[in-house]
């Protein structure tokens, strides 16, 4: 279990991270989201011991995160980097050995992982001979080969095509099954929504929202309606409490000021009986993200 208590980091006059606190239980995935420059990488660096916090503490199972715990960490940095002239196997075994594993123990696992992640290339291939996507997979293997208990993934989906993104997603979900604590950052809210158990949204180094995906979404209420009926755009707009209407083919996407407005809209739309679509939904994470970031920017 990872516990972060009141982390603060300043760079001169700039407060990069302010009073950050959260907890990740074993077998739990935490998504850290925020715009560029929100303090995600600085937070990761403090978790990894690459940077000392000005205040606060990072605890692993209740004890300070020290050199011994480093072997339990798997870290995938935002800017990927491997030795281009080294072979795939040497690379994976070297990073695994730096996490305290015996090379003899690691070598048989290399093949398993290459097959599992469908890496196109041999273990004797040099890194520079692989495509970018396959290099990213090798980097993921170097992150996970030593079966880490705390996995930190900085933008794991960046630069991946949809197929490779799915492979990455499966790998992260499997970590949860193995009981690891996982924290990852992403700009892709779709992936965050599908994978993470809990979400932490930060901006300008400050926590602005935290909770499970459903909790956060519900907290904004069901203020969006997809409506397909005989009503015209102007008829919908005329309903009190409707903020905006966008046409998507035959379906209108209606923004409501309050979830209760949905009932009024439903009554109006069904006054003549059957309608093909009426779906009142919560905002997507992306919409919430834009809303919160925009709100604070304003």
């Amino acid at each position: 279990m990872l516990t972060v208590n009141n982390l603060v980091k300043n760079f001169g006059d700039l407060r990069a991270v302010s009073a950050m606190s959260f907890q990740i239980n074993d077998g739990e995935i935490l998504g850290l989201v925020g715009p560029n420059g929100a303090g995600k990488t600085t937070t990761f660096r403090m978790l990894l011991g690459l940077m000392c916090p000005d205040e606060g503490e990072v605890l692993w199972n209740g004890a300070p995160l020290n050199d011994k715990v480093r072997d339990l960490i798997g870290y995938l940095p935002e800017e990927r980097g491997l030795y281009p002239k080294e072979t795939v196997e040497h690379q994976i075994v070297y990073f695994g050995s730096l996490r305290g594993k015996d090379p003899k123990e690691l070598k048989p696992k290399v093949d398993e992982w290459l097959t599992k992640l469908k890496v196109k290339g041999k273990k004797s291939s040099k890194i520079k001979e692989l495509s970018k996507g396959n290099q990213q997979k090798v980097q993921l293997i170097t992150t996970l080969i030593h079966e880490p208990k705390l996995v930190i993934l900085d933008e794991p989906f960046s630069g991946l095509d949809p197929i490779n993104a799915d492979i990455m997603k499966d790998a992260i979900i499997e970590l949860r099954k193995q009981g690891a604590c996982v924290i990852f950052s992403s700009h892709n809210m779709d992936n965050v929504e599908k994978i993470c158990d809990r979400l932490l949204m930060i901006k300008n180094g400050q926590q602005i929202m935290t909770g499970s995906v459903d909790e956060i979404k519900e907290s904004f209420g069901r203020t969006k309606v997809f409506l397909e009926s005989n009503l015209t755009k102007s008829e919908i707009m005329a309903v009190p409490g409707v903020l905006d209407v966008k046409a998507q083919g035959k379906v209108f996407e209606v923004k409501l000021a309050d979830p209760a407005v949905g009932k009024e809209l439903f009554k109006l739309a069904t006054k003549d009986g059957y309608i093909p679509t009426f779906s009142q939904q919560t905002l997507t994470l992306e919409e919430i993200f834009k809303l919160k970031v925009g709100e604070l920017n304003g």
Partner: peptide, 12 residues
């Protein structure tokens, strides 16, 4: 090559 972060997260 940005390998440093990974290395320094493995060892001091």
């Amino acid at each position: 090559l940005r390998i440093m972060e990974v290395i320094l997260s493995s060892t001091n």
